[in-house]
């Protein structure tokens, strides 16, 4: 029998992404445990990590962290490839798309709070669209739009403020770790 060694070389960048994704997955699990009256309304705590990564390491790293969180979070919650997983994936993709534009806004005027609100609206917008096209093909779904947009605004501001505070308290030189 030959012994084969699979050698996987990892870069510090990979380690950082893994650590940050782990933090995001932890928050996603906490998120899923919080009971809320309306299906589809969630605080989206894991997006705090996405915002911090976006500010510190750029969009590409944020996309990695966000994508890993969606897939690993889906596996851990037992909803991988279920409708809930695709809702979460659509939301993540659309908010990443919007964030790619949001970080180009002048930094003196627009900070993490703006990014967070914009991403939250993109998130719920994408999910509503997917739900309308695929899961609930009925216009009655739009009856819930005011509730969803109010939730997006409220949680968008809260998550943005938390991200802004963490960014202010953690010096830029200190590597962020999942502790």
């Amino acid at each position: 029998m030959t012994r084969s060694v699979t050698k996987l070389t990892t870069t510090p960048e990979d380690h950082r992404i893994a650590q940050l994704a782990a933090a995001a997955i932890g928050l996603a699990l906490i998120d899923a445990a919080i009971p809320l009256p309306l299906p589809g309304v969630k605080p989206g705590l894991a997006n705090i990590v996405t915002l911090i990564v976006l500010a510190r390491y750029g969009w590409a790293t944020a996309a990695w962290v966000s994508g890993l969180r969606v897939i690993a979070g889906g596996l851990l919650l037992g909803q991988f490839l279920s409708p809930g997983f695709f809702m979460s994936l659509t939301g993540a993709l659309l908010s990443l798309l919007v964030l790619a534009f949001a970080i180009r806004l002048p930094g003196r005027w627009f900070g993490p709070v703006s990014w967070s609100i914009l991403a939250a609206f993109a998130h719920i917008g994408g999910q509503l669209l997917l739900a309308r096209l695929w899961l609930i093909p009925h216009n009655g779904l739009f009856y819930l739009v005011p509730l969803f947009s109010a939730a997006a605004l409220a949680f968008g501001i809260i998550n943005g403020l938390i991200a802004a505070r963490l960014l202010a308290e953690l010096p830029a030189t200190e590597p962020l770790t999942a502790e």
């Binding site: 703006s114 109010a150 605004l153 505070r165």
Partner: peptide, 23 residues
């Protein structure tokens, strides 16, 4: 917490509130 808002953030928040109101 209010100090963490940048000027444009208020604008974006107001925009979000408008979307809620219009919807």
């Amino acid at each position: 917490w209010l100090a963490l808002f940048r000027p444009g953030d208020w604008l974006v928040a107001a925009l979000g509130l408008t979307i809620c109101g219009v919807s």
